[in-house]
């Protein structure tokens, strides 16, 4: 069951990534160039997804938007895992007041609404890709930190850690060689589950007009533009970018759920030994 879900998710994601990477390249046109003579045309053979209010082809532009959104999501997820795994593992391995203080900081970050903090960060650096990535990564590492910390707490007093310690290992060595690698599968599952969340965050920021500038395609900017066309009957301007968002979310969610099931399996197998 988990394998079928994983395969379906991977196939869908590969198709989406192929579409996002290849279409803008093969189309040979700049998706930002406007052609008002062709504005708001419905789907046809010439324009499979129709055109937007500036006459730009939505088949190409949705692909370009998907590419940008997926790129932002992947970078955010990786950064979140990096920060979260290090904070979680070191906090649990250190224990005592270091652990308590770190967890209160995590609670503090969690207490601030993510979107609000993201908006503040992005507003400071309007239209900057780095600011968008930072605003998502800096607000989403906490769940990874919690997962990794819980995993490391359950591992740090095991006998194989004692054995490494007696062999002369330092705390950092134990974290690096025994605790982090054991906690990493769980952290990666969290990262995969974070991907659609990051896509949604980026879309929301751009939809609110705080993300990327309107001419730069992302799923968020496309949905934001669709608002005006929708009232004039241009349903396709909303449907196709939204479909990209939903399909990317479903693909990644399927992969994440399958990986989470798989990560839980060795524990069960181990218990039978």
């Amino acid at each position: 069951m988990a394998d079928r879900r994983l395969r379906a998710g991977v196939v869908l994601l590969v198709l989406l990534a192929g579409y996002a990477l290849l279409v803008p390249w093969l189309a040979g046109v700049d998706d930002r160039v406007t052609d008002f003579a062709a504005a708001r045309q419905g789907p046809s053979w010439a324009h499979l997804f129709g055109t937007d209010s500036a006459g730009r082809d939505l088949f190409v532009r949705t692909a370009a938007g998907l590419r940008v959104s997926l790129f932002i999501a992947v970078v955010c997820a990786l950064l979140s895992v990096l920060i979260g795994a290090l904070v979680g593992a070191l906090s649990a391995a250190a224990g005592g007041w270091v652990d308590r203080l770190t967890m209160r900081v995590v609670d503090g970050v969690n207490a601030v609404p993510h979107l609000l903090l993201g908006i503040v960060l992005v507003a400071l650096f309007r239209g900057s890709l780095v600011a968008i990535i930072a605003s998502i990564a800096l607000t989403h590492w906490t769940q990874v930190a919690r997962i990794v910390r819980a995993e490391v707490l359950s591992l740090r007093d095991r006998e194989h850690v004692d054995a490494a310690l007696l062999g002369g290992a330092t705390r950092w060595r134990v974290v690096r060689r025994h605790l982090l690698p054991a906690a990493l599968p769980q952290a990666l599952v969290a990262a995969v589950l974070l991907l659609p969340h990051a896509v949604w965050h980026e879309s929301t920021l751009s939809f609110l007009g705080l993300g990327l500038p309107p001419h730069a395609a992302s799923l968020g900017t496309l949905l934001q533009e669709a608002r005006s066309s929708l009232l004039l009957g241009g349903w396709w301007t909303l449907v196709f970018p939204a479909l990209g968002l939903v399909l990317a979310t479903l693909a990644v969610a399927a992969i994440g759920a399958a990986l989470r099931d798989r990560a839980a399996l060795p524990e069960r197998a181990g218990a039978q030994l």
Partner: peptide, 8 residues
């Protein structure tokens, strides 16, 4: 011995 080695 099972508990005292890293299974990986």
């Amino acid at each position: 011995p099972r508990r005292s080695v890293d299974a990986r």
